[in-house]
């Protein structure tokens, strides 16, 4: 429920009166200080490093502070091939991050298995186990693509409501903050995907 319309707010700003809401202030602060987890899996991580260097300069978005511990990170950039051996660790790292937390799946491997999709040992997309906020296609995506994903994520954070029925997952007490960590089964990971976040294409709604 907007307390004050955008037009009135604009008019007031022209007169030198600045009005904001707690929600806007909160989101403004959050979106400009997203701290990613320092976590690279394969070749895409090289592009992620390039994005944080001087030429592409991730610091312009307030996101240059790559944290070595999930306790201090808001964003997980899944940069590279997720092997089935690594998948439980990725999910556990995600679980260990404090809320609110976001995930960018970077590159063909992280979103679908990419060039290794037919392989027996590669997970066909990290979104089978954890909720992904932004997917970036490409093999590898250029740093500009990562920057674009960042801006998309910032827009998403900016639009998140603080209260009401549309508030995001981390604001709801009944929604989980941890997702089940898959186990090594006889032939595959058990379970092969988390039913609450992913269902096979074509089976939408059945889950």
């Amino acid at each position: 429920m907007p307390m004050i319309e955008a037009a009135l707010q604009d008019e007031l700003r022209k007169q030198g009166v600045f009005i904001t809401t707690l929600e806007d202030l909160y989101n403004w602060g959050r979106k400009n200080s997203v701290w990613p987890l320092q976590f690279g899996l394969a070749c895409c991580a090289i592009e992620m490093m390039a994005a944080s260097m001087a030429r592409h300069d991730l610091a312009r978005f307030g996101a240059e502070v790559f944290r070595p511990s999930p306790r201090q990170a808001d964003l997980m950039i899944v940069a590279g091939t997720v092997t089935k051996k690594m998948a439980p660790q990725v999910v556990r790292l995600y679980n260990q991050m404090p809320e609110p937390k976001y995930v960018i799946a970077m590159g063909a491997c992280a979103i679908s298995g990419g060039p290794f999709k037919q392989g027996y040992n590669v997970l066909k997309g990290i979104d089978r186990y954890i909720p992904v906020d932004v997917h970036i296609p490409g093999c590898p995506p250029r740093p500009e693509a990562l920057l674009h994903a960042f801006m998309t994520l910032q827009e998403k954070i900016d639009a998140q409501a603080l209260s009401g029925p549309n508030r995001p997952r981390h604001m709801r007490a009944d929604e989980p903050s941890e997702f089940p960590v898959p186990k090594f089964g006889d032939h595959d990971l058990e379970p092969p995907h988390n039913k609450s976040v992913w269902s096979p294409p074509g089976a939408a709604g059945q889950s």
Binding site: L162, M171, E178
Partner: peptide
């Protein structure tokens, strides 16, 4: 606003 959600994984040693 933001309910606390501790869990076995989150509280585990990193």
């Amino acid at each position: 606003f933001s309910p606390q959600k501790p869990g076995p994984d989150k509280n585990a040693t990193y």
